[in-house]
Amino acid sequence: MGDADHKHDADASKTGAETLAWHENDMPFSNAFQDHFYSKADGRAECNHVFIAANRLTERWQAGGNFAIGELGFGTGLNFCETLRQWKRLRPAAARLCFTSFERYPLKSAAIDRALSHWPELAEERRALVSRWPDEPSDRIEIDFDPQTRLVVHCSDALASLTASAERFDAWYLDGFAPSRNPDMWSAALMQTVFGHTTPGGTFGTYTAAGFVRRNLQAAGFSVTRARGFANKREMLCGRRPDAP
């Protein structure tokens, strides 16, 4: 996520309860939360550093079987598309990935298409996502991309949706808007619920190193580590739920 320091243009469209604007270099920006949807340096590279590498996914996928990723904040679908790109390249024959995201204000397919067009490396994944994305997203979106890959997006309050879910996740992408702009996405209650829906030994990565986020994650039960941040961010957080006794 980037800081809101660019003047947006007049090309804005209403998406759910928030206003989407486009900054220079076609960067999507939330007027409601006053934050960019991904790093101005390179959102795809940020995904690799903060989520895929911090969760050791390329290594863990080699074990095969079922793997579940949970994400707070689907946004433009960038994290999903980059994960899908790598998953298709690395997955064992019998492995299966379920990527579940919680996004209260889903974007329209045209906005997703525009935002992801910045990365030609994701053209195949972008087209696959946009072609399947519903014109009017409901409370729950389910898309099977192939027999080994499913996407689920809960389009409602993250805490309520996750609390009601029976799912458990092997890795988390904590990618809500900046904690100073969207504190509910980083609350103690939500971090405790994330912990409760994490498998023993499950992990998380997040671009932020905000003190209250770190404390909420630790209070929930995660072991938390400060790591080198992406681009101009000095630090980020990653961590793990301890193994069951």
Rank of each mutant, 00 (worst) to 15 (best):
A12H: 04
R60Q: 02
R234S: 13
P200V: 14
A54Q: 06
E124N: 06
E24W: 12
A17T: 11
G201V: 15
N232Q: 14
G65W: 00
D42K: 05
T206Y: 15
S13K: 13
G2Q: 14
A164L: 01
A189W: 05
A220H: 01
A95P: 05
A21S: 13
S39Q: 12
N232L: 07
A219F: 00
E71Q: 04
L57H: 04
L151W: 00
L90Q: 05
R60C: 05
R150V: 09
P242E: 08
G211M: 10
T198I: 11
C98I: 14
D170W: 07
D3C: 13
S30E: 14
R91G: 01
F145R: 10
R226I: 08
F102M: 10
D146C: 07
G75K: 12
P120D: 05
Q34C: 15
R114V: 05
E125M: 13
W22V: 13
G16I: 01
K108M: 10
F80N: 08
R150Y: 00
S131L: 07
D11C: 10
R91A: 12
I69A: 01
A227V: 13
A95Q: 07
E142G: 04
R228M: 06
N55I: 12
F195H: 09
G65R: 05
R85Q: 01
S161T: 00
V213Q: 03
P28Q: 10
A45T: 14
H36D: 14
A68D: 08
R60F: 15
E46Y: 09
A128E: 11
E59P: 00
N232R: 15
I112L: 15
T163Y: 11
A171P: 03
I143P: 13
L90K: 01
W119N: 05
P92K: 02
P120E: 02
A171S: 08
E46Q: 13
R240T: 11
G176N: 01
F67T: 03
C81G: 08
S156L: 01
L122Y: 04
H23W: 14
R89W: 11
R168C: 13
S223D: 14
Y173V: 02
L237Q: 07
F37A: 11
P183K: 09
F99H: 11
